[in-house]
Design a protein around this nucleic acid. Structure first.
Lengths: 219, 219
DNA sequence: CCGTGGATGGGAAGTCGTGCCCATTGCCCT
DNA sequence: AGGGCAATGGGCACGACTTCCCATCCACGG
């Protein structure tokens, strides 16, 4: 038989619309298939014990039992099960808790569909998935908060990176910035890449809003 | 009969929690009563046409139509209607735009409950409400800028274009915007093209800064 | 009834941005 | 001396953006 081997996925979220959306995204992937759905943490544990489930997508905030509690229970009883936590918030503490609870990854609900599928595949391969840029920024946030008590500081962009972000937020292209700074366009893009990574952002628009919030440029 | 005459209030804000909070504040006042609620700009206009509504509280930044656009539409169609703009930001341009759009006042969301009620009463009496401390600094900024010959032309953008520009300025890609509005990515790009043309801009970054200046999105 | 303009969509081509791989240089710190 | 890191740059792939062309449909006013 040549049936493609699909990984079985459990979806657990208390919002019906979110469940339906996730189901469509997952089922659209050729190598993934939704085999169970749960609307609260208790049912997520029940259904996650089903051996057809290879990967559990758990919302952090669910009634009756949180995604974190469900993850702890599930990974204790089925160590081979992969778990991805879904969250609305880019908050470091949640991520830490998620990893401590046995999750293989932490995915924001704001991500694009494609990225969710990528995260699922990474989790199934046994990798711990997190947006490359989130790691550093989250770790830094956490360390700073631990060190300074609290307060969100301006980020640890290097001086050169600050120059670049300003020019980006003024609407210049890489080539124009390169001419401005008399360096190679390639280097400008390298800096931009690092900035996006450090701040956990996706594109120039988010970066522009950041720069305006920080007062680096005028709107 | 001795029923106290209550002024009818419309609350328009895209955040449910904010709506609920405002409703409680308003309904706690003996002379005010919430008679309508809206979660975006289009619905704000619909419900603001209801003759029971004497005063509209409009959030500056709402989906589908901004508070400013809604205010323009409402005051054009119901000149006797009073409008108060609600904003998170103490920024002069927003205030000017609000007044130009027909608002009777501009209230920061950080105000105390009591001040909001005072602002409502002032607006209902036909006064233009603004925090005394804001006036001087705001007027000064404005005069400086007027002296420099800066004239912000009003947006000749269509309603649809405004929706699109907001989503662009929030960092969404064309595909994501297309899903959000349930139209084709191609159409999103068509709108973006028209917007760039109308405003004489080159890319999403300049467009983002424009949207922030106009109060279409928060930085 | 016709014209205007908004909203919708498609195609093609070229530029730009983003992600991921690689490298070298120099500087600071232990 | 070795480790870490900022700054520099190359290559490659892919997706996103931008700018042209084209079109249909609908609402509204004259």
């Amino acid at each position: 038989m040549s049936v493609p081997l699909k990984a079985g996925v459990l979806i657990a979220d208390d919002h019906g619309l979110v469940r339906d959306g996730l189901r469509m995204v997952i089922d659209a992937a050729p190598d993934l298939e939704v085999v169970a759905v749960a609307e609260d943490g208790n049912r997520a544990v029940e259904r996650g014990l089903d051996p057809r489930v290879d990967l559990a997508l758990l919302d952090v905030a669910m009634p009756r039992r949180t995604g974190l509690q469900a993850a702890r229970e599930l990974t204790a009883r089925r160590p081979e099960l992969r778990v991805l936590m879904l969250s609305m918030h880019n908050v470091f503490d949640y991520f830490l808790e998620a990893v401590k609870a046995g999750a293989s990854g932490y995915v924001l609900k704001t991500v694009a569909d494609r990225d969710l599928v990528l995260a699922c595949r990474a989790a199934l391969r046994g990798e711990t998935f997190i947006y490359p840029g989130m790691v550093r920024s989250l770790l830094r946030e956490h360390l700073e908060r631990a060190a300074l008590g609290e307060s969100q500081l301006p980020d640890d962009l290097t001086p050169r990176e600050s120059e670049v972000i300003k020019l980006i937020a003024e609407g210049l292209t890489s080539d124009e910035i390169a001419r401005e700074l008399t360096i190679s366009p390639r280097t400008v893009e390298r800096h931009r890449e690092n900035i996006l990574g450090k701040l956990g952002m996706r594109n120039r628009v988010e970066l522009t809003r950041y720069a305006i919030r920080q007062g680096l440029v005028e709107p």
